[in-house]
């Protein structure tokens, strides 16, 4: 597998005064590319005034209310993306 690009989460503020809203994610290799890719993908129809991009692994999330029902509290990543989890090279089939 190639050493990859990174996943960034995208937040858009439609108009001044409104809150930033999470719209999805993009891939990019660096910050400049991340902002450009986010703009190209999520504001093609003029949907935004300002864009934030955040490397997905930088996001720390709180446990859900139903943490005991669903959730391993040590997991604070937003989702299960494999690159968030560093597996040592010696481990196979993962």
């Amino acid at each position: 597998m190639e050493k990859g690009d990174r996943v960034w989460e995208v937040f858009i503020q439609k108009k001044s005064g409104l809150a930033f809203k999470h719209v999805g994610s993009i891939h990019a290799y660096d910050k400049k590319m991340a902002v450009q890719n986010a703009r190209d993908l999520y504001t093609r129809r003029g949907e935004g005034r300002e864009i934030w991009v955040v490397p997905a692994e930088a996001i720390v999330s709180t446990p859900l209310d139903q943490a005991d029902a669903f959730y391993d509290p040590s997991e604070d990543k937003v989702y299960r993306h494999p690159t968030f989890y560093e597996i040592p090279k010696e481990v196979k089939n993962i």
């Binding site: 990859g4 093609r44 989702y79 299960r80 690159t83």
Partner: peptide, 27 residues
Amino acid sequence: IQDEAGHGLYLYSVAETLGISRQELIQ
């Protein structure tokens, strides 16, 4: 066509939330 590329990207993002990487998907 550009929209279609965009739709592909939205959907790859959705798939990634389920624990698979874009690289694996392409592979």
